[in-house]
């Protein structure tokens, strides 16, 4: 067991190390200058500069703030709405077509409208992140409600549950095991979209850092920002995965 845990850390690290070596070789033998294709060393130096002068932290916090806000809004609106529509069969018939129509429209297609409606600043970015995570969450919640064993509703009826109790004691706990993977996916999507959103609407965030570094021809900074995005992405994912450990949720995985 201890051995297994150890391997769980060592093996992924080995893959990263191998990637670093391939990267270094590619950079050395490509014949391009390090301004065009920086190797790991140049990138590490750049990373140190960005950390030392606080730029990286400042941009990461800005991005995280937008993602958190947009994602929470999507959860707060999407999950209850999904429970309502999923529970109310007529509602499903009414809204399903509309949802399926809006869903494939990429959040990025909303950029011009978002800029027009919300101007420059955090608002359009948060709006885009909201859109990006809202639809996957809404659809997954509706599906999860449909998957609830009808027996549980009969139990609820048998014990005279009020509608509020049915929502809080049956529907919500019943969808949690299915909802967590959906949260995981939509948080991932939100993190994808924030970079795009920050390239157009704001002057901070990791997306802006990439754009700004490109304009300054600092490809090492561009790569540093990419690395930061990847690392924060891993951390966000881990946080959601931890929720699976809650005992009243773990029945779903049996």
């Amino acid at each position: 067991m201890a051995d297994f845990r150890y391997m769980q850390i060592v093996l992924p690290l080995a893959v990263f190390l191998a990637l670093g070596i391939v990267w270094q070789c590619a950079a050395s033998f490509s014949g391009w200058s390090s301004a065009v294709f920086p190797g790991p060393v140049a990138t590490a130096v750049g990373m140190w500069e960005l950390i030392a002068n606080g730029t990286l932290l400042q941009h990461s916090v800005a991005s995280l703030f937008r993602v958190t806000l947009g994602f929470y809004l999507a959860v707060i609106v999407g999950v209850p709405l999904g429970m309502l529509i999923g529970w109310w069969k007529t509602g499903q018939v009414m809204f399903n077509a509309l949802i399926q129509f809006l869903r494939p429209i990429s959040p990025l297609a909303w950029i011009p409208l978002a800029l027009l409606w919300f101007g420059i600043g955090d608002k359009p970015a948060v709006f885009l992140i909201f859109l990006a995570s809202f639809f996957p969450l809404l659809v997954s919640t509706i599906t999860a409600v449909n998957h609830i064993n009808s027996l549980y509703f009969q139990v609820a009826a048998n014990f005279n549950f009020s509608p509020l109790e049915t929502v809080s004691k049956v529907i919500f706990p019943a969808i949690l095991p299915e909802l967590l993977p959906a949260l995981r996916i939509s948080l991932g999507v939100a993190w994808l979209v924030v970079v795009a959103a920050e390239m157009i609407a704001v002057k901070s965030g990791l997306g802006y850092l990439i754009l700004d570094s490109r304009n300054a021809l600092r490809m090492d900074y561009v790569m540093d920002a990419m690395i930061a995005i990847g690392l924060i992405g891993i951390c966000l994912d881990r946080i959601i995965v931890q929720l699976n450990r809650i005992e009243s949720v773990s029945w779903g995985s049996v």
């Binding site: 027996l151 009969q154 139990v155 009826a157 048998n158 014990f159 004691k169 949690l176 009243s248 949720v249």
Partner: peptide, 27 residues
């Protein structure tokens, strides 16, 4: 309609799986 004066014991899996035995019994 269903009422808590007449309780139905289901063929299987009638317990709410997100509640402990105690919470289920207390419904």
């Amino acid at each position: 309609g269903p009422s808590s004066e007449n309780i139905f014991v289901f063929q299987h899996n009638g317990l709410l799986p997100w509640m402990t035995v105690w919470e289920n019994a207390g419904l």
